[in-house]
Design a protein around this nucleic acid. Structure first.
Lengths: 227, 227
DNA sequence: ACGCGCTTTGACCGATCGGTTAATACCCTG
DNA sequence: CAGGGTATTAACCGATCGGTCAAAGCGCGT
């Protein structure tokens, strides 16, 4: 027996190939059938491999799932970094960041479901999700610091939560509403473009309202409530 | 053996008492431990009752869950109806509706988790959730018809989705972020009040931006995109 | 006291789960 | 060819799940 060592990423090639095949099978199942369909047996069958190999290479199904989820988070952060990193005014970068976010979500529709599912079930992988959610919140809060007060109802974290909610929940709720309630297939290119326009409009509305609400150009730091 | 008939609500009292006790036990488990902890055995144990009685009175655990969920939906709709039904300008009623929504969510924090969990897992009760989500969407869309265009990115359904996302996801995501990432206990009275203020501010920002975007007082009906 | 119908019980079923293990196949090196 | 580490396999384990069932308890009218 050998130390499973699924973490080190540069092993001998045949070993890594098998391990990767199993990981890919797991991701495919998550994408197509969701979290509850992810069983060691299902993964093994999909990868064309004996069930025991799943444990041999990955130790447990939980580990396997977390690796898939971490790949998603890594890709997500890359996408945001790239979209945000361009030059331009903060407003422009904000809109570009939103576009990058949406591009990523459109391309990885399972991601929203998986995260939201862990969050809403208090699943066994909450700690991992919590860590990444915290990182994302911290990063955007830093970027918005120039626009919003540091505390109170107009602080960056509220906008982060509201915007990401409006993004994520489209991908989780709209498909459930479906064509009959939403009016058309929510995942069609036209519907996605319409949603994108809505979110950009919303961001603009926020920016304008922030300008109107906060007196001078830079942020004051009110702690008290609004309204 | 007798027809289980869990639906009829006015039976003999001893029978209903037992059935209710089981239902309450199920709800308690859902509130305290979540959906995956809802097993026939757990319910029976909690209700102090033989496991077979769960099936005798409710037919299946699925039925039991749906009854609990439907009670939540009924209460939710009552709360919204009452909050919206007051007189006043549409804007005032909108803010009151938001307050009613938030009051309800604060008082029933399990509700958001249960719904979101069904949505994000594609759970076995999606059909029920879909029906109620559709009803809620239809109702608010009707109310907003006077303020928003009938189609496109500023149509009522987009605002419904964005607002409910911003409300619901606070109750599902903020607790996961926790005190360490959110800055203080997100479910404390002060944090809840701050979130409430944020959402009211957001609605106001939307209303002002809608006024600025749409030329005359009443709605035009553009179909095309924005931005 | 009897019987009848509703209620309650514990034992049981088959399926599925994650995970283990001991035996075997494979392959490369000496 | 021999040996040793790696990879792979089938069989097995205990736990849990939803659900069923036949028997037993029980209350009540006759």
């Amino acid at each position: 027996m050998v130390p499973p060592s699924p973490s080190t990423s540069d092993d001998k090639s045949p070993r890594r190939a098998r391990a990767r095949a199993i990981l890919e099978a797991a991701e495919a199942i998550l994408v197509e059938e969701g979290y509850e369909a992810l069983s060691a047996r299902a993964v093994a069958e999909r990868a064309g491999v004996n069930k025991a190999l799943v444990f041999y290479y990955w130790g447990s199904t939980a580990e396997l799932f977390e690796r898939v989820l971490e790949r998603y988070y890594a890709r997500h952060k890359d996408a945001l970094r790239e979209a945000f990193g361009q030059d331009g005014s903060l407003e422009e970068r904000l809109h570009r960041g939103l576009d990058g976010y949406l591009d990523f979500m459109e391309a990885n529709q399972a991601y929203a479901r998986l995260v939201q599912q862990q969050v809403s079930t208090g699943g066994p992988h909450l700690a991992l999700v919590q860590r990444h959610l915290g990182e994302l919140l911290g990063a955007t809060s830093e970027l918005l610091a120039a626009l919003t007060p540091q505390g109170g109802p107009l602080s960056a974290k509220h906008f982060h939560l509201s915007l990401s909610a409006a993004v994520i929940n489209y991908f989780t709720y709209a498909p459930v509403l479906g064509e009959e309630h939403w009016g058309r297939d929510p995942m069609s290119a036209e519907a996605l473009a319409e949603r994108r326009a809505h979110l950009h409009w919303m961001v603009d509305a926020w920016l304008r309202a922030l300008d109107a609400t906060l007196p001078q150009g830079t942020r004051p730091a009110p702690t008290g409530g609004q309204r």
